[in-house]
Computed example of a mutant assay.
Amino acid sequence: MNKNNLLSQLTITTSSAESIIQPNWGAKYGITLAVKRDDLLHPVISGNKWRKLKHALTPAIAAKTQHIISFGGGFSNHLHALGYCCHQLNIQFTAIIRGDYSHNPSPMLQDLICWKTNILYVDRKTYQQRGEPDYLKRLLQLYPDALIIPEGGSQQQALQGVEEIIQELQVQYDYILAPVASGGTLAGLIKGATQNVKHHSCQILGIGVLKGEGYLEQLVRDLLVEDDNNKNWQINHNYHFGGYAKSNHELKEFCDDFYQQTEIKIEPVYSGKLFFALRDLINNGYFPQNSRILALHTGGLQGAR
């Protein structure tokens, strides 16, 4: 497939609608609850993964990049989306994976193997160096001329794609909620709302999906740089369920019930924690009466496979 044709095909699908949902919670508080269905952008490269990758891949294609490197866990939606893109674009892809899944590859990793990805399993100590200049320099010595995309695709180029979510909104909201792991999506929403007069008063609430109080906030601030003038954002750390990709029976049952009520598929790593938190916050009176709330479905169902 021609590279430009692929990008054109995906670009056509990068606008998603806001859908009002009516689960059996929230109505008695007069709350209007909508979901931005970014999970429907593309069958493989859904949600914030494509939002964060599109402005990184476009210049990479123009520069005739032959090799891309990135990082993630064994159920990474980011690596799955990027691996698919690289396979379709005929770009060599190296995925550096936290932990050794070589004897029991996850469905996501099985897809990467089918897409001819070069997979490197590393221990947690090595993986922790993924953002350190010396480690990145060593990677580039091993793979000259490769393009390194950070974990989760979270970098300055990612914010541009996420900002487009705000530009697409049809109505004004009091709150926008999104899951937070690498910070790029929340930073893009904050920046987009800050620069859009129609939405600058909207509160941006992130739901941390891993143990990272302080750490996640710093990731967001680092991406915003000088643009962190909007104080209308925060991250709630009460719904990580023990850490990244951690869950329990209650959360998994909630994901199933939510699908039965709304016909919207969610999973326990990202979107499930977001909507669980939303229900709990509504039922505990966190949001004022008659609030208009938008939940961003960031797509990616690797955690449910």
Rank of each mutant, 00 (worst) to 15 (best):
A17M: 06
I20V: 14
L186D: 01
A95I: 02
Y173V: 01
T117D: 09
Q160D: 10
D111G: 02
I69G: 00
M1Y: 03
L112W: 11
A63P: 01
L10K: 04
T194W: 05
S19V: 14
F93S: 04
L177C: 13
Y84V: 01
K64W: 00
K252P: 06
I20P: 01
Q218L: 04
E18K: 00
E226G: 00
N48H: 04
Q195N: 11
R305K: 07
G192N: 06
L169K: 06
L216T: 02
D228H: 06
N24K: 10
N232R: 15
D222A: 10
Q302L: 04
N5M: 07
D134E: 15
Q203D: 05
E151K: 08
Q129M: 15
S16L: 03
P43G: 04
L136T: 11
H200R: 05
A17C: 05
Q172R: 11
S271M: 08
L41E: 02
Q302R: 02
G99H: 08
E18P: 01
L6W: 07
P288T: 05
I190W: 03
D39Y: 07
R292D: 12
S182D: 06
M1T: 10
Q260F: 00
I12R: 09
L40D: 02
G208C: 03
P268V: 01
Y215Q: 09
F258D: 00
A60Q: 03
Q66E: 15
L186E: 07
A62Q: 08
F287D: 08
Y121N: 13
F287C: 13
G272Q: 15
S19R: 07
K36E: 03
Q129K: 15
L169W: 11
S106H: 15
Y84H: 14
V269Q: 00
D228Q: 07
Q9N: 12
Q261G: 00
C202K: 02
Y135F: 15
L296V: 08
N90M: 06
V220A: 05
G83R: 12
I61T: 08
E250A: 10
Q155R: 13
S154M: 01
Q261F: 00
P179D: 07
G152P: 04
H103N: 15
Y244R: 07
G131L: 02
S76M: 10
G206R: 00
L205I: 11
N230S: 08
I148K: 09
I149M: 13
G212Q: 00
L10N: 06
S154N: 14
C86I: 07
H87V: 10
L186K: 11
P268M: 04
Q128Y: 12
A193E: 01
Y244H: 12
L251E: 01
F75T: 12
Q157G: 13
T185L: 06
K246L: 05
A178I: 01
I190D: 07
H55D: 04
L33W: 04
E164S: 14
C114H: 14
L140I: 13
Y173C: 07
K3E: 09
Y259L: 02
T14N: 14
L109W: 02
R51A: 05
L40K: 11
H200C: 09
L251N: 07
K54R: 11
S154L: 12
S76V: 03
A187Q: 06
C86K: 06
K52W: 10
S154I: 13
L109K: 10
N24A: 03
E213V: 05
G83H: 12
L41Y: 14
G131W: 11
Q157E: 14
H103V: 09
K54T: 09
N236K: 11
N24C: 13
Y84I: 06
